[in-house]
Every structure is written in structure tokens, then in C-alpha cells.
């Protein structure tokens, strides 16, 4: 009974993930593409839950479904590009068929890498080093959040600090990039320096 439910959950959320992905590609309107992206992210969150990665599912909804897509929508609305793509002509001949062929080949490559190369399953876990490769074994009795937090703040603490620096640099970089160069924001009352 549990297996059947698992299969149904997987099939439905998998369909949502792929359907959302198709929606991103096929919708001409960027706003609709962003909404399809949300659907896809939510499907991925459900897949995370069914694999017992509860914290990641939560973060997936908050960060991806919330922050990132809202950022996309914000930019779309701010710039007023929320209309269908106007450039219908392909600037490279054969671009679309070639892109689809390349995508199918990428899929085949991933499949080959997953299922043709070396032992899979239990054997794959011990293929490289001759022993179970778990660096941080999952403890089923502990909550997922607690384990992930312990791992982040002990084994990965340096990388965690580095992400803090990375986010700061990204924020500063964004401010520098979108700064309105040439427009003197602070001297608006001087005649002749209209910022339009």
C-alpha cells in the first residue's frame, strides 16, 4: 500500500516537474514562464519530501519558489518586458532543431553515464574505494534538520562562511551593475540636471 502511494506521488510530482519545465520553454510570455517555473519548483519540493530531505524541501519552496521567482517576476514587471517575445525570426539557421537534437543527446549521455558505466546500486557505493563511501551516514532516528545543521556547522563550516562572503559580493555586485550611471540622483534641484 505504501509502495503504491509512493509511485502515485512520484508520477504526479514528476509530471508537474516536467510539465513546468516544458511550460518555461514553450510559453512566449515571460510571466507565464515564471509561473511554470514555480510549478516545477514545487514538484521538486515534493520529490525531496518523498526522499526524506525535509529541510531541503522547505528551503526549496522558500528560496526558489519564493525569493528567486519573485525576483524574476519583479524584474519582468519593473522593466515592462511582460509581453510575448517579438523576435520570431531565428538569427541562426537551424537553431531550434539543432538545440532539440543536442538536448536529446545530452539526455542520452546522462542515461549512459548513469546506467552503462560501472556497477550501480549497492555495488556502486563501494566501487571507488572498496568501502561504503558514506562521509556522513544518515541517522534515521534524528531529525533531518538537525543532521544537516550539524554537518553544515562542523564539517562544512568553512564553505558555509565562504557562502556568506559570496552572497555579500553578489549583493554589492548587483548594486554596482544596476547603478544609474550619469544620472546625478542627489542634485535634482539644480536646473539643467534633469534625470528624466
Amino acid at each position: 500500500m505504501g509502495n503504491v502511494a509512493e509511485v502515485i506521488v512520484f508520477l504526479i510530482s514528476g509530471a508537474i516537474v516536467l510539465g513546468g519545465g516544458l511550460g518555461v520553454i514553450l510559453n512566449r510570455n515571460p510571466v507565464h514562464a515564471a509561473l511554470s517555473l514555480i510549478a516545477s519548483f514545487f514538484g521538486v519540493a515534493v520529490l525531496f519530501i518523498s526522499q526524506e530531505a525535509h529541510f531541503l524541501a522547505f528551503v526549496q519552496v522558500v528560496v526558489y519558489g519564493g525569493a528567486i521567482v519573485v525576483l524574476f517576476l519583479f524584474v519582468i514587471m519593473l522593466l515592462g518586458v511582460d509581453r510575448a517575445e517579438q523576435v520570431r525570426v531565428e538569427q541562426l539557421s537551424m537553431q531550434r532543431p539543432l538545440a532539440i537534437v543536442t538536448g536529446v543527446m545530452l539526455f542520452g549521455l546522462a542515461m549512459g553515464g548513469l546506467f552503462l558505466s560501472g556497477p550501480g546500486g549497492e555495488e556502486g557505493a563501494v566501487a571507488a574505494t572498496g568501502q561504503q563511501s558514506a562521509m556522513v551516514p544518515i541517522d534515521e532516528t534524528e531529525p533531518n534538520v538537525r543532521q544537516l545543521g550539524l554537518d553544515l556547522f562542523t564539517r562544512n563550516v568553512l564553505a558555509f562562511e565562504a557562502t556568506a562572503i559570496l552572497l555579500t559580493i553578489a549583493t554589492v555586485g548587483a548594486v554596482v551593475l544596476v547603478r544609474n550611471e550619469g544620472a546625478e540622483d542627489l542634485v535634482v534641484d539644480e536646473p539643467g540636471t534633469s534625470i528624466g
Binding site: F55, L56, P137
Partner: peptide, 10 residues
């Protein structure tokens, strides 16, 4: 999940 290793989730 497959290799029972939390490093993937990190």
C-alpha cells in the same frame, strides 16, 4: 538516499 550519505544534501 541511495548511498545513505548526508553529504549529498549539504
Amino acid at each position: 538516499k541511495m548511498y545513505d550519505d548526508l553529504a549529498g544534501q549539504s
